[in-house]
Computed example of a mutant assay.
Amino acid sequence: MAKSKNVRFDYFKVYSRSFNEEKNVMEDKPANLKDILETASQIEVKKRIIVVGDDVARLQSIDFNNNMYELHFIRIRKNGYPVKAHDDGSIGYFQDVTDEEGFGEEVSALYDPKNHIVMIRRNMFSLSPSAIASFFTSITNVPGYSYYFRPLVHPKALSLMKKDHLVKSAVVNIADIKNAAPQTKATVGKIITKADEIHESVNFSFKISLNPKGSKKKSRIPIYEELMALSQDDNVVGLDVTTKANEDASVEYLDLIEQKLVDFHRFSEKDFDLHFKNVVHKTVISQMHRLYRTRENDLKIYK
């Protein structure tokens, strides 16, 4: 059994997107999941299902403690099972799993209805924030209305780059473009279109940059708003920008993702369940409460 396990926790602000018929525009604003969680708690567990690629996930439990909602998701694998490997060198197969069963991976989340903030345990088997948000959207079942989670970013991170700075290049890494926010997909298209606005050659790979040969000191790629939008999507895992405050300033290298609010905690051997040989939801959620309490002052700073 592993002696310790390092676990990552990410923080997000809950937002909703809906169509304002009066203004004829889509509007984004902070949203409270309290009502939808109360609705979800009344749904049979077996029907609280999220489709995640070839797998499914289930909202196993919803509990309310210390003014916070404790959410326990199970990501369920029903194919591609691993083999059993014995220390004696032999291997075996899981043969007693029925069609109604599967292997589950636990995902824990903590929701603060007062601040509209959700904290999610992240790992390689975790549900993406967009998948969890889509689950709540499906329960709401209102045409044109959706939830999404926006990463909490330190205001200084975004203030490092001003609108009037000269953007020279940007390298963007999107972990799962299929599950990226609709705004992110639209933003990628906008960036390509905006390349038509300058008279110089522009490289695109999803690295976009001015061609150094023949580039003028005052040249810029006009994608400030698009970069700010990309920084708000958790599927965007890398966003490195080179910029200049003005045409005579030195080039600066900025990482707009680095300042997201993230916590790590290393669970020791004493935290492992002896039967499951892992850190179970109850232990993880207890630690999440403790970490969240230490972040209360930070939550007033991060946007």
Rank of each mutant, 00 (worst) to 15 (best):
E101S: 12
E200I: 13
V237P: 01
S126M: 06
S18R: 12
K216Y: 07
E100P: 00
S146Q: 10
S61G: 01
E269V: 08
T294S: 14
K46S: 13
L227P: 01
E105Q: 12
P82N: 08
Q287W: 06
V14G: 03
N67W: 08
I36H: 05
I177T: 10
S138L: 06
H154F: 12
D35A: 14
D63I: 01
V167G: 01
D96I: 03
K190E: 14
S209E: 15
V241T: 04
S169Y: 09
S61C: 02
T187N: 06
L33S: 07
S108P: 02
S219V: 00
P222C: 07
A245T: 13
N6W: 06
L33H: 06
E22W: 06
A229G: 00
K163E: 15
D255S: 14
E100I: 03
D99R: 11
S209C: 08
G189M: 08
G238Q: 13
V56M: 11
S130V: 02
L291M: 15
G214P: 06
S138R: 11
E269H: 14
F264I: 01
Y111H: 05
D10T: 12
Y145A: 05
D255Y: 01
K13I: 04
N278K: 15
N246H: 14
V83S: 14
E225H: 12
M1H: 08
D196N: 14
K5C: 03
A170G: 04
V14T: 10
H72Q: 07
I36L: 09
H154S: 10
V107M: 07
A186T: 05
K3S: 09
D28Q: 06
P212Y: 09
N211I: 11
K216C: 02
F264A: 02
T243W: 09
V171G: 00
V262R: 14
L256K: 09
K218E: 15
Y148I: 04
I285L: 03
R122H: 11
A170I: 07
V279Y: 07
Y292C: 00
E22T: 13
I177C: 01
Q95G: 12
K23V: 03
F125H: 11
M228Q: 11
L291V: 06
Y111T: 00
V284K: 04
K185Q: 15
M119D: 02
L299M: 13
V107T: 10
E27P: 00
N235I: 02
G214K: 11
R293H: 11
S134I: 05
F135E: 04
M68N: 08
E105I: 06
S134F: 03
N246C: 08
K244V: 05
N203I: 13
L274G: 01
F136A: 07
V167K: 04
D63L: 10
Y111N: 03
H165K: 05
D88Y: 08
D273E: 07
G80S: 10
T193P: 00
D99P: 07
K213H: 02
K178D: 12
I192F: 10
I120A: 03
G104M: 04
I192G: 02
N65I: 13
F94D: 08
R77C: 01
L227G: 06
V142G: 00
L239A: 03
L71C: 05
R58E: 11
